[in-house]
Nucleic acid binder design. Structure first.
Lengths: 190, 190
DNA sequence: TTTTGACCATTTTGCTCATTTAGTCATTTT
DNA sequence: AAAATGACTAAATGAGCAAAATGGTCAAAA
């Protein structure tokens, strides 16, 4: 056992961050869980924050893959955008690490966690933006500021998936798809 | 002097809340500022929270009036919606009380303040919703869920006016109007 | 060369106690 | 009689501090 020490550490840290949050997990705890000495962690990561950073980098890759998988090149852009964003929202809602870290931001606002989640958002926006740029190039949608559009799309999904539920019944997937189509595709004009 | 004691108290409290925040203003401070005894405050308001509540109620009225004023019955609905929402966003950005209270929510998360600002949001959404319902009735826009649409419109304005600025240059008024038109009126379809 | 845990400087925590605060009410003022 | 008041109380807050915990280092061990 204990072959890939770095992966062991990452796994242990991910588990602990998901369970107790970033602030409440200690490096010693991670070392114990990973069956390595505390010093070993610092041969792979330059700080606790750096450890979290690397973990989030994998999450970003994972999210991008999930979103990419949900898309189908034969379907229209807006449908793919919805599928991707919906999967991204699902991921956030279901992944123990993102759940815990977002909760930690709300409850204690740990700066390192805020920073890292901002980076996650930026990565998602960059991903969506790329898709928008492609769709514009292909003439699938009208020309628009892809950065702002990606930003607004993500905001809309977060609003519908997380904020709406604070005061109302959760919206079913179909309703969200319908709303996305209405506002980003058709508009309210008759 | 000291004619309308209740108004004095409200004025003093508004000033103090705007300057120091809700948590950091004491009832005694308000009493001093208003030139009344502490007990007098409790003949008009049943608690500190109730005092804040009444102040926010006036703010709600004020915001509604400002928004109403910005609208012109001869212009199309979407233009009016933009004008109203833009004014509402401006108000939030410029009114010392809302600035301070929103900052207090970010910094220390005072529960009473969170509650009261939620109420403000609900009032704005209700206001917009009414306008949407009217526009639907008059056939100005296509039928839609007015509650969700109002919710999304406000979210979009907050996103463009407050969240966008955290990572980018502020968007000029015209750009925001253009984006609003694009997404809520026309959509991205060609 | 890689791994390790004792070690160090700094933070965080748990605790006490004095101060402050929201709210009450008997007394004073009008 | 009605309205206003501020001394008072119970509860909350926060300053101050000792003890414990924590992130990170590094000389020794493997």
């Amino acid at each position: 056992m204990a072959i890939d020490r770095k992966q062991n550490i990452i796994d242990a840290a991910t588990k602990s961050f998901s369970l107790f949050g970033y602030k409440a997990t200690t490096i010693e705890q991670v070392a114990k869980l990973a069956n390595v000495g505390k010093g070993t962690i610092y041969t792979f990561f330059k700080s606790k924050e750096d450890l979290l950073d690397e973990i989030i980098s994998s999450v970003i890759v994972e999210i991008k893959e999930t979103a990419e998988h949900a898309m189908d090149p034969d379907r229209p852009f807006l449908e793919n955008a919805h599928r991707a964003l919906y999967r991204i929202a699902e991921f956030r809602k279901q992944h123990p690490l993102t759940i815990k870290l977002l909760q930690e931001i709300r409850d204690i606002g740990t700066p390192a966690v805020q920073e890292v989640m901002k980076r996650l958002d930026r990565a998602i926006i960059a991903f969506i933006r790329e898709k928008i740029d492609n769709a514009i190039k292909k003439g699938e949608i009208r020309n628009c500021d892809s950065e702002i559009t990606a930003f607004l799309m993500l905001k809309m999904y977060i609003a519908l998936n997380f904020d709406w539920e604070k005061e109302h019944e959760p919206l079913p997937k179909e309703k969200i798809a319908e709303l996305f189509e209405l506002y980003f595709l058709k508009g309210l004009s008759k």
